[in-house]
Amino acid sequence: MKIGSAELENRIFLAPMAGVTDMPFRVLCKEQGCGLVFTEMVSAKGMHYNDDKSTKLTLLDEKEKPGAVQIFGSEPEIMAEVAEKLDRSDAGIIDINMGCPAPKITKNGEGSALMKKPELVAKIVKAVSGATKKPVTVKIRKGWDDSLANAVEIAGIAEENGACAVTVHGRTREQYYSGKADWDIIKQVKRAVSIPVIGNGDVTGPEAAKRLFEETGCDAVMVGRGAQGNPWIFNQINKYLEEGIIIPAPTAEQKIQTIIRHMNMLIEYKGERTGILEMRSHIAWYIKGLRDAAYTKQKLFKLTNKEEIFNLLQSFLLRQENT
């Protein structure tokens, strides 16, 4: 599959998720066959003011290229300036966030709040597309709420102003992540535009991914929460689509080995203190559904160093093997 000039291995993508899709996790997903990874969303204003934390979020490992860097903001000039900076970076694709539902983002008129301002959407997409030679994509939702479910209109505006693809999450901003994703809106967008459409929402496994392709005709599928603590989902989906095979879930031992590797990568990337604090959420996702997961999570969130977590994981694994 191609998006603009970016050639991708397959049509199963990792969604941008704040606090989740950092470099180590993206690398793990890529190793499991993810066709395209997206960074956590990066503040255009932060990059404009040369904030180190914002700039670091845009860095890509060699193993994850061509990766997409997602930016958010509401000022066309600043968004264009950032796109110009990213034009000289390793980013394979520049993605514009118009779907984030978080109040701290929408109260500034950014993220999914942009869907209420079609004229501003046009200006932002045109400004970003004009400032870079890299493919520009846009991530949107069904709409702000059910009374303003304007994904078809916004997708058309994105295409007219230079977007090479659009991702549609089948929930409104009002829904956040609750309820059921409306796949019909993805189908409507696919019929309305000629650029690739990426379907997003409720892809929790191989069968759901296949159904999303079949029901909407979308060009690619994006996996969000289904990938949390589960980088194996990409290999599972690809195998199912290619060969109709359901790969068994990883064993407890495989999960613990991956957790330890993930933790070491995160510590190397962010330092021990930050790495450990952030890793605790990842571990909770990895062990969900296993024996004694609730008890282990309770203990986990009180720990602050690598050695303690390693010991907790080893005793957790022993309990799995003795079931």
Rank of each mutant, 00 (worst) to 15 (best):
305 N>T: 07
128 V>K: 10
280 R>M: 06
148 L>A: 09
302 K>Y: 08
156 G>K: 15
152 V>Q: 09
71 I>R: 01
271 G>A: 10
252 A>V: 02
31 E>W: 07
206 P>T: 05
219 D>A: 10
302 K>M: 11
23 M>C: 12
137 T>P: 06
209 A>D: 06
195 I>C: 11
271 G>S: 07
129 S>I: 03
147 S>G: 02
320 Q>N: 10
165 A>D: 06
192 A>M: 05
72 F>K: 04
316 F>Q: 04
149 A>C: 13
77 E>I: 10
254 Q>S: 10
185 I>V: 15
13 F>A: 01
275 G>V: 12
1 M>P: 15
31 E>M: 14
140 I>C: 06
157 I>Y: 07
92 G>Q: 01
55 T>Y: 09
5 S>A: 15
22 D>W: 00
93 I>S: 03
12 I>L: 10
109 G>A: 06
119 E>K: 15
323 T>H: 05
181 A>R: 12
297 K>R: 15
125 V>S: 12
283 I>F: 00
52 D>S: 14
147 S>T: 15
17 M>R: 03
299 K>E: 08
227 A>R: 05
47 M>V: 11
279 M>R: 02
222 M>G: 01
2 K>Y: 14
119 E>P: 00
241 L>V: 05
170 G>H: 13
1 M>F: 08
321 E>W: 04
94 I>P: 00
285 W>G: 01
231 P>Q: 04
126 K>L: 01
164 C>G: 06
16 P>M: 05
64 E>D: 02
298 Q>V: 02
57 L>F: 05
85 K>T: 02
107 K>F: 01
76 P>R: 13
75 E>P: 00
315 S>Y: 02
302 K>A: 11
184 D>G: 04
8 L>C: 04
313 L>M: 12
74 S>M: 07
292 D>S: 13
280 R>Y: 04
173 R>L: 03
247 I>F: 00
289 G>S: 09
50 N>Y: 12
63 K>N: 11
101 P>N: 05
291 R>Q: 12
253 E>M: 04
192 A>R: 11
171 R>G: 01
118 P>Q: 11
148 L>W: 02
199 G>V: 13
174 E>R: 14
11 R>D: 06
245 I>L: 14
63 K>Y: 01
